[in-house]
Every structure is written in structure tokens, then in C-alpha cells.
């Protein structure tokens, strides 16, 4: 009888332990949208950011989906906020905003990416020149994450800012990207988050200045 009680109590204790801490905490459960986001910036280490004086920015945002064959242009409230925040940030770094016709040194392209998987072919082609491919990982080349990374969300929305050098086209007349920012995670298409995401992207890119 005693033995049975011991046996039962030990099994109960083991079961309690396992249910108490049998599996680890799921970090995704207590993560805010802000915490879920990552901001990736990259730049051309050969670029001399002090050599550029002027920039122009797109008048609408490219919307890209790997479910559609072509990119669309859009100008939602989000897109307006994005254009104005990025323009302000560029100006705060000493670059002068000019019209596209005024031969700017830098071109700023804005893209919203709606991925249903983790890869997307990208060729907006409406700036008036072909972008230098491959540098960022898209279009064409491999995606940012190594293959052992797992993206939990099947549908992922992203936003990208690309700054191209219009002063120094390549031999075959392509423009090279000198700076990129890519936002991933929850809420990157939320208008209220635009200002802080632009801020974070520029804050981590102190070299992006002509001062």
C-alpha cells in the first residue's frame, strides 16, 4: 500500500514537473509588433556619400507581389507618409531635394513587397533606368537569410528604401545602389510606424551624410 502511494506520488510529481516546464516559452507569444520588426540596412562600401549633393524621390511607391507579374504604383496615406519621412531624413543628412528633371545625384526608390513566400523577383523598371541587380539580394540573387533560416509567416509584408547613384552609371548604363533599408516584421505597412522605422534606419547608417 505504502509502496503504491510512493509510486503514484512520484509519477504525479514527474507529471507536474513536465507540465510545469516541459516545453520552453514561446518567444513569439509575448512579442509586441515593434519587437517583431527588424530593420536591415546595407551600403556600398566604395561609395563616397560626401560626393553627392542632391537627390530626387519617387512620386509614388512601387507595390510588388510575387503573386503578380508586374509591379504596381500606389500612393496611399502610408505611401505619402513614407515619401515625406524619407525625404525629410535625407534632407537632415545634408542632401537637397530636387526634381527628377534636375539631374539629381541620388535617386530614392520606395517599394512595398508583399511576399507569399520568401523570395520575389523584382524589376520595377519605371525610374527610367534598369537598377543594378544583385547587390541587395534581389532582384535575381539569393535572399538575405541563409537557407537554414525559417520564416514563420507565410505571408510577409516588407518595405524597402533603395538609394541609387545616378552620377556614376555603370558601363552598361545601370545604376548602382549605394544604400538600402529593408523592413520586415509585423506592422511594417502601418502608417503610424513609418516615422520611427525611417528614424531607426537612418540612425544605424551614420555614414549616409554629406556633412
Amino acid at each position: 500500500m505504502k509502496r503504491t502511494i510512493y509510486l503514484l506520488s512520484s509519477i504525479a510529481a514527474l507529471a507536474a514537473l513536465i507540465s510545469f516546464s516541459g516545453c520552453g516559452k514561446d518567444p513569439l507569444k509575448d512579442m509586441t509588433a515593434e519587437e517583431s520588426r527588424i530593420y536591415i540596412t546595407n551600403h556600398d562600401s566604395q561609395a563616397n556619400f560626401k560626393s553627392y549633393a542632391t537627390f530626387s524621390i519617387v512620386d509614388s511607391v512601387a507595390v510588388l507581389s510575387n503573386r503578380a507579374d508586374t509591379a504596381k504604383k500606389a500612393l496611399t496615406d502610408y505611401d505619402k507618409q513614407l515619401i515625406s519621412s524619407v525625404s525629410a531624413a535625407m534632407q537632415s543628412r545634408g542632401y537637397t531635394l530636387v526634381d527628377k528633371a534636375a539631374k539629381p545625384d541620388l535617386a530614392v526608390a520606395l517599394t512595398r513587397i508583399d511576399n507569399s513566400f520568401t523570395n520575389v523577383a523584382w524589376n520595377p523598371g519605371w525610374w527610367g533606368g534598369a537598377w543594378g541587380p544583385g547587390y541587395w539580394g534581389y532582384p535575381g540573387g539569393g535572399w538575405y537569410w541563409p537557407s537554414y533560416y525559417v520564416v514563420y509567416q507565410v505571408n510577409e509584408k516588407q518595405t524597402a528604401i533603395d538609394v541609387f547613384d545616378l552620377k556614376n552609371p555603370t558601363a552598361d548604363n545601370k545604376y548602382v545602389s549605394v544604400w538600402n533599408a529593408l523592413w520586415r516584421g509585423s506592422g511594417v505597412w502601418n502608417t503610424d510606424n513609418v516615422a520611427s522605422m525611417v528614424q531607426a534606419s537612418f540612425d544605424q547608417s551614420t555614414y549616409l551624410t554629406n556633412k
Binding site: C23, G24, K25, P27, M31, E34, E35, S36, I38, Y39, I40, T41, N42, G137, Y144, N180, A200, S201, Q204, S205
Partner: peptide, 14 residues
């Protein structure tokens, strides 16, 4: 190696 990544990292090992 491919850029600067701003993130809240949660590092776990079980």
C-alpha cells in the same frame, strides 16, 4: 556580413 540588422533578439537554447 550582408548588412546591419536592427533587431530585438530572443536567444533560446533548450
Amino acid at each position: 556580413k550582408l548588412g546591419d540588422v536592427s533587431a530585438v533578439q530572443t536567444r533560446t537554447l533548450q
